[in-house]
Design a protein around this nucleic acid. Structure first.
Length: 416
RNA sequence: GCGGGUGUAGCUCAGUUGGUUAGAGCGCAAGAUUGUGGCUCUUGAGGCCGUCGGUUCGAUCCCGAUCACUCGCCCCA
């Protein structure tokens, strides 16, 4: 059996249509915010991800497609979009032209067990705003995400979860307090959480284990450890969102898995995709650029899974928009050359033309119905002799004779 | 990476308590219709019953492994 590689998928038909719709819609919205497109290579030196995402993160420790090329370099298929974009900014000296607003779409790769809404090769749209460190930037990025979802008519299916991870100082203070607190319950924690206590204690906050949750209830709260600056920053972001009427919930347990995040973190989440409910997510990453060897510029960005968006679009039964297709129906094989020539002429005039290929006339008309044509142009010996065509409107049960020379104008007028 | 479920036609699914040529509906193709689609009727094509191995005189069916899909965990988009 010729199977595609595990966790990969062929895209065609309605799925391909939806995929394109998502990308085109998102880019059109991003353009209104003055985002420019960027395309980075599909793979990078492994260091790009290892150094930035955090050695203990799941992505780096078990999910990367890493391989050695023939020159002995360790390369990795990109598991996410932010690190390559930041690398590209440094590589190309774009740090001279901050602020930058960049939009991308493309394939990402993670070696995971596939599930609904989770593939090994998946595709993201994403946006990064690099330079300004102001709550306005955070709010603008969230607004962009919201507007993209809105343009796809998905905003009502999704809830914005918002949190702050504070600056480095606040986070370190809280982390210490949390670990101190959890140490006393160490033996009661789930095995996953015991592990997390070492690697990423904040993650324990959103554990699904019941016992963990009970313990967490009396744990110290992040907001009590935020310094004034972090608090003020987050308050301002919230004020902007409220002012823009973007609904959200402050989810104090929202933690993001990658090392480079700080301050604002957000996820648009749906309940209708099972365990993979996160549809568009991101956050602020102030230390990333410097960590990668660039200047100390801050940034905020998000990524969104195109496949997940498409699943949601399918669930709400999106209607395929009928194009204005017209099918030319030769009454027999003898009229095919003439019909082909006519098709080319009409296409050149800007019309969408298909040809009914084989069988008797009945079959050819049937095909014109099936491909959703608005009309059939019937060409037989009589029509050729009289330089006319029979135009049959397929959803109006109406038919009229039109001179061949006027066909293009006839349809262009009809469709306008 | 861990645990559960499922694999029969392009799609949705029957079925065989182990026994010649494995079924239906939809879809596809041809015809009924020598120039008129959606409805109807007739006919046809299409399956190594996911793959490999074991048990058996004989396996699509029982057993094992493997692969894929799926649900949950982990994690994320």
């Amino acid at each position: 059996m010729l199977q595609p590689v595990r966790g990969t998928k062929d895209l065609f038909g309605i799925e391909a249509v939806l995929y394109r719709k998502v990308v085109d819609t998102a880019y059109a919205v991003a353009l209104r915010y003055n985002f420019q497109e960027i395309q980075t290579p599909i793979f990078e030196f492994s260091q790009v991800f290892q150094r930035t995402l955090g050695e203990t993160s799941d992505v780096v420790s078990k999910e990367m497609y890493t391989f050695e090329d023939r020159g002995g370099e360790s390369l990795t298929l990109r598991p996410e979009g932010t690190a390559p974009v930041v690398r590209a900014i440094i590589s190309n000296g774009l740090t001279q032209s901050l602020p930058l607003k960049l939009f991308y779409s493309g394939a990402m790769f993670r070696y995971e067990r596939p599930q609904k809404g989770r593939q090994r090769q998946f595709h993201q749209i994403g946006a990064e705003l690099i330079g300004p460190k102001t709550p306005l930037a955070d709010a603008e990025m969230i607004a962009l995400g919201y507007e993209v979802l809105k343009a796809l008519n998905l905003h009502s299916e999704v809830i914005l979860n918002l949190n702050t991870l504070g600056d480095a100082e606040s986070r370190t203070a809280y982390r210490t307090a949390l670990v101190d607190f959890l140490q006393q319950y160490k033996n009661d924690l789930s095995s996953d959480s015991k592990d997390r206590l070492e690697r990423n204690p904040l993650r324990i906050l959103d554990s699904k284990d019941e016992t963990d949750q009970k313990i967490i209830q009396s744990a110290p709260l992040f907001q009590d450890y935020l310094n004034d600056e972090s608090k003020a920053y987050f308050n301002q972001v919230q004020r902007y969102l409220t002012d823009l009427n973007i609904p959200y919930i402050h989810n104090q347990k929202l933690v993001r898995g990658l090392d480079y995040y700080c301050h604002t973190a957000f996820e648009f989440v749906t309940t209708s995709l099972g365990a993979q409910g996160t549809v568009l997510a991101g956050g602020r990453y102030d230390g990333l650029m410097k960590q990668m060897g660039g200047p100390d510029a801050s940034g905020i960005g998000w990524g969104s899974g195109i496949e997940r968006l498409c699943l949601l679009l399918q669930e709400q039964a999106t209607v395929v928009t009928a194009s204005n297709l017209i099918t030319i129906v030769p009454t027999s094989d003898a009229e095919e050359p003439f019909a082909f020539h006519l098709a080319q002429t009409l296409r050149a005039a800007g019309l969408y033309i298909d040809i009914g290929y084989s069988g008797n006339m009945s079959k050819r008309l049937k095909k014109a119905s099936k491909n959703n044509s608005i009309a059939a142009i019937i060409i037989g010996a009589d029509e050729i002799a009289s330089n006319t065509a029979q135009v049959k409107f397929l959803n109006e049960s109406r038919q009229e004779t039109v001179p061949l020379s006027q066909l293009a104008d006839f349809f262009n007028t009809y469709l306008s």
